[in-house]
Structures are given as structure tokens and as C-alpha cells.
Simulated scan of single mutants.
Amino acid sequence: MNTTKYVLSLCRLFVMMLTLGQGIHLLPVPTDIPMCTASETAQYSLTFTGKWSQAAFPKQYPVYRPPAQWSNLIGVTHSSDYHMWQRNEFASNGVREFTEKGEAWTLMKEVETAGERIQSVYGILSAPAVVGGTGQMNTQFEVFARHSYLSFIVRIIPSPDWFVGMDGIDLCDGDHWKESVSLELFPYDAGTDSGFTFSSPNFETIPQDKITQITSSYPSHPANSFFYPRLKHLPPIAKVTITKVKKSNQILSMPVEPTQSNQLPTGNEIEDKLINTPLDCEVSVWSPWGLCKGKCGDSGMQHRTRYIIMHPANSGVVCPLLEEERKCFPDNCL
């Protein structure tokens, strides 16, 4: 009898599984997942252009020790199931070390591990650093249908853990490769260091935060180097242009060596200098009123002062008066 009950229970369970299975099959199957069916590989040229000028970002713009500049670019070509970094997700140890210190060894090991374990990474690319807030770096790379996505990261120097980059841009469009892709880039916070300014000392974020985009109002703190409350949006701090190139017998996978022309202003840089972000004057709070100076029995004067924290730039609001005086009566007369 017990055996019969057991068999009946299994039958009921089997029927329930079939019923649930039928219910699952009735759910709509997504059909909008892009699938690359390009038959051949494609070669692309990548140009990174820094737009980090003192006119566009006048607040606390680093001019020395070290001056504004960009790290080398590290990128990967990969499938859709891989992410080097993701907005609103935690940064890996490799991303942490790269954005805080510029050390790429752990990040490269993470990329290699992903390529070996799940075969989601096809190639690694790099480009030389830009010595200055404006300038360009270039590299070339190859993609094919199964690994048609590109991701990269560039560290903002100096900064606590700030960077720019792309997360999984698909260069394939159905059965053919896109001719070109151009994107403006904005700063991100890796969520591993709590500094507010470009030159903040190392101050580890515990617990670690997720990767967030830095805006003109976030983090909402007047000490933040990117805090421009008068702006609705920050101007782009960099730009990337990816262009399909004609195939040749030689596969170009090494970064283009830096040349003297990388340090010369380009047409884009000249145009970028027209971006003038207004920076209002910032002053401290008033000091306490000073002693009342005057003869006993007569009215005197006392003063208070404040000082400039941030000088205005690009037609920003000028500084107010830094000294005030008022009448008073000495209170220390015998």
C-alpha cells in the first residue's frame, strides 16, 4: 500500500511538473536579442580624445603634482556575457587597482581568466597614455561575430578612483559591421575611494560602493571637484571614435606608438576650447566681529572678514566684499 501511495505521489508530482512546464512555455520568448551573423572579421581604429581642459573644468583643475592627464587605455573585445566594469555594480579588484593606482596587472589577470574559463574574451588592446588633459591616443584591433563587443577603461589622473570608459558597445549590426561609432565620455566613480577632489589623499570606502556616474550635482557636496550646481549637465570630459578600416594582410593588434603629434592640438581640441564652464566665486563664512576700536564714551568701529575659497572663472559670479564694518560702543571702559 505504501508503495502504491508513493507511485501515486510521483505521478501527481510529474503531472504538476508538466503543468508548470506548459505554463513556462506559454511565456513570451524574447526575440530582440541582437545576434551578429557577420561572416568575416573586422578591423577597427580607435581614437581617444581628452577634453579635460581648464576652460571646461575650471574648478580645482590640476596644473601640477601631477597635472591633468590620462592613463593608458586598456580594452577587450568580448561576447555579450562579459563585463569589464558595469555602472551600478561593484568594481572588481582589478578595476580598483587600476583606477586608484594605475596598476593593471590584476585587471589583466581577470581578463585572461574570463577568456580561459568561459571563452568570452577574444583580444586585449591598449593605447599609450596622454600627457595632458587634452590630446589623443590611438590603437587598432580586430573583432569577429562571436566577440563583437568592445569595452575599455582609462584612468583620470590625478583622482581618487575616477575613470572614463565604455561597457560593452556592440560593433556588429546584424550581418554587417558598423562603419563608425562615436561617443562622448563622462567621469565615473569606482566606489572604492571616498576622496572628493582630484588630489585627495587615499581614503578607502568601507563598505565598497557601486560604480556611479559623476554629474554636475552628484556627489552633492561643494568640495567635489566636478560640482557645478549651475550646470544641468557636465560637458563631456573625453570622446572616443571607432572607425572600421579596410582589411589588409597584416593584423594590427599592437597599440600605435605615441608620437609628437599626440601632444599637438587637433581640430577637435581647438573646438573644445570654446567650452567655457562658468565657475562662481566661493568665500568662507564671516569671522567673528573684532574689538570695538574707539574712545570711551564715543562710538567706535569694529570689523569682520572672510576669505576667497574659489576664484571665479569664465564669467562666473564675482566675489562679494571680503570685509565689513559697523559702529559700536567700547564695552571695556573703566
Rank of each mutant, 00 (worst) to 15 (best):
M1L: 15
L8I: 10
L8R: 09
S9C: 11
C11A: 13
L13M: 11
V15W: 14
V15I: 15
M16K: 12
L18R: 09
G21V: 09
I24Q: 11
H25D: 08
L27D: 03
P30H: 10
P30F: 07
P34G: 09
T37H: 03
T37S: 12
A38Q: 04
S39N: 06
S39M: 04
E40I: 01
S45G: 14
S45M: 09
T47C: 05
G50M: 09
K51N: 14
A55D: 14
V63N: 08
Y64V: 10
Y64G: 06
A68Q: 07
Q69L: 09
S71M: 05
S79C: 05
S79A: 13
H83A: 09
M84K: 09
E89V: 02
F90A: 13
A91S: 15
A91P: 01
S92P: 02
V95C: 04
E97P: 00
K101V: 01
T106H: 01
E110K: 01
E116L: 10
Y149P: 00
S151T: 12
S151A: 07
V154M: 14
R155H: 04
P158I: 10
W162M: 08
D167Q: 14
D175E: 12
W177G: 03
E179L: 10
E179C: 01
S180F: 10
V181I: 13
S194W: 04
S194N: 09
G195F: 05
P201H: 10
E204F: 02
E204L: 14
E204A: 13
T205L: 13
I206Q: 11
I211H: 02
T212E: 08
I214F: 05
S217L: 03
S220K: 14
Y228L: 04
R230E: 06
K239T: 07
V240G: 09
T241C: 12
V245Q: 10
V256S: 13
P258K: 08
T266G: 15
D272H: 06
T277F: 07
C281N: 01
C281L: 01
K293V: 15
C296N: 11
G297Y: 05
Q302M: 15
R304Y: 01
A313F: 04
S315C: 01
V318A: 13
L321S: 03
L322A: 03
E324F: 00
E325W: 15
L334R: 13
